[in-house]
């Protein structure tokens, strides 16, 4: 019963939601809205688990590794300040409040810096990875070179030739590969979903 009941609930709710998706009726929409409330409630219930997990992992790390204590403190302080500063809608929406100030002056620059560092990583990776070791590596190199060259301003004719080459690469081989991947992933997703609905795939139930 410990296994059959969850499988039955999954089967019933899964089939119900599949049918709901294809029925354009108000009752179907009401059912969808009602089911969404469940998802939101489950999501809200998972929030305290996430918070506990973050706090627990940070505190444990600080205890075990003295060198990490400063970073752990920054994490905990950042967490506390951001939560408190956004507790009330007015505090969160205030364009000059603490939450917005931290967003604009701490989070935004940190994210921009991390993203900007990607350029250096990519440059370093380009130096190490794009080497003509094999024919396939050569094809990859030439393709990457042509596609990246479209960002660089080139003299008139060269720009047109490069533009046409990029359009062909993105519109023919790239498109064919992407479409195959998308169709493959979709078929895999459908097969996996059917296995879950029919109770064949049970890994979500845990091991015991």
């Amino acid at each position: 019963m410990r296994k059959q009941l969850p499988i039955f609930i999954v089967f019933l709710s899964g089939i119900l939601m599949v049918l709901q998706y294809f029925i354009p009726h108000q009752a179907s929409e009401d059912l969808f809205t009602y089911a969404n409330d469940f998802v939101i409630v489950i999501g809200i219930l998972s929030l305290p688990i996430g918070i506990f997990s973050l706090l627990n992992a940070t505190v444990m790390k600080a205890r075990r590794e003295p060198n990490e204590r400063f970073y752990a403190l920054v994490t905990l302080a950042g967490f506390a300040v951001m939560v408190i500063s956004g507790l009330k809608r007015e505090w969160f929406n205030d364009g000059h409040g603490l939450n917005r100030m931290l967003f604009q002056n701490a989070l935004n620059p940190a994210q921009s810096s991390l993203f900007a560092m990607l350029a250096f990583y990519i440059a370093s990776a380009a130096y190490r990875a794009f080497r003509v070791r094999t024919i396939l590596a050569g094809v990859l190199l030439v393709t990457a070179f042509i596609v990246m060259l479209r960002i660089v301003p080139l003299p008139g004719v060269l720009s047109e030739v490069n533009g046409e080459a990029v359009r062909w690469i993105l519109g023919v081989p790239n498109l064919a590969a992407k479409r195959a991947i998308i169709i493959g992933v979709a078929l895999g997703g459908i097969a996996y979903s059917i296995k879950i609905l029919l109770g064949i795939e049970r890994s979500y139930l845990g091991r015991d």
Binding site: A119, I122, A123, S124, A126, Y127, R128, F130, R131, V132, L141, A144, F145, M148, L149, I151, V152, P153
Partner: peptide
């Protein structure tokens, strides 16, 4: 900035090879 980053990457690719 975009152009500069791409030129650096392209130069690295050529130098590497």
């Amino acid at each position: 900035y975009q152009v500069a980053a791409h030129v650096v990457i392209l130069i690295f690719m050529v130098l590497s090879n």
